[in-house]
Design a binder for these strands. Structure first.
Lengths: 112, 112
DNA sequence: GGCCTATCTAGATAGATGTCGAATCAGTGG
DNA sequence: CCACTGATTCGACATCTATCTAGATAGGCC
């Protein structure tokens, strides 16, 4: 989970080593095509997605999908909730917008 | 390099497998504390950074820094230019803002 | 040309990661 | 209580990655 390096974009000031360790965990979680697509499915669904639907969208075993979801969960990118037999995942928009803000290039118009 | 999945945020629509592969490469490059800090140093510097300064900021060998810079370069996150003895790196803001846009949560106010 | 410095490439190695099958846990319904 | 289904955990294995040392390449300077 990201506890530091809250909001300032990269361009504003350099990260400390500790901030970088935290943030890198989140980006590393995004650095796999399967996980990125899982997050994309979860985020673009209305509110939440069932693991059963997510698993069906890939040509991978259940345990593998479960592993990737765990990585996303531990990176703070999604949360999960069990309702009866099924487990539902939803995005954590705080984390997503935090990462988004970090990569934002405020000087886009003034850089060049 | 990212060639597809140009701009739409994750929440808008799910990624295709191909888009996910492309984008995951960029995020994977960000998924290492050293590389994230390198990018942060490069981006927060005025315009560009010399490899010599970057290497000095870490407790790592030159070749290791060079390797990480190569990963960032191949992910399209930075470009390099040799001027005389030294090599300078600068950020590619197009790529950064593209990734930023992908993670942006347009419905931040309306999600909850 | 020859030497020095800055950077990159090559090869090696220890550790991390993605994937699977098998086993386990959680909940539903007979 | 038992069987069944959905999801996770466990253990194993092949592959990838971060790091190093040693060597190569590029440019400046005497």
């Amino acid at each position: 989970m990201i506890t530091q390096g809250c909001c300032a974009p990269l361009a504003a000031e350099a990260l400390t080593a500790d901030q970088a360790v935290d943030l890198a965990k989140a980006f590393k979680a995004l650095g796999d095509p399967v996980r990125l697509r899982l997050l994309s499915l979860i985020t673009s669904a209305e509110g939440e997605s069932c693991v059963c639907d997510l698993t069906a969208a890939f040509d991978l075993s259940g345990p593998t999908i479960s592993h990737h979801l765990k990585v996303l969960r531990e990176a703070g990118l999604v949360t999960s909730e069990r309702r009866g037999t099924w487990v539902y995942y939803r995005p954590r928009s705080e984390t997503l917008s935090q990462l988004s803000g970090l990569l934002a290039t405020p000087g886009l118009a003034s850089v060049s």
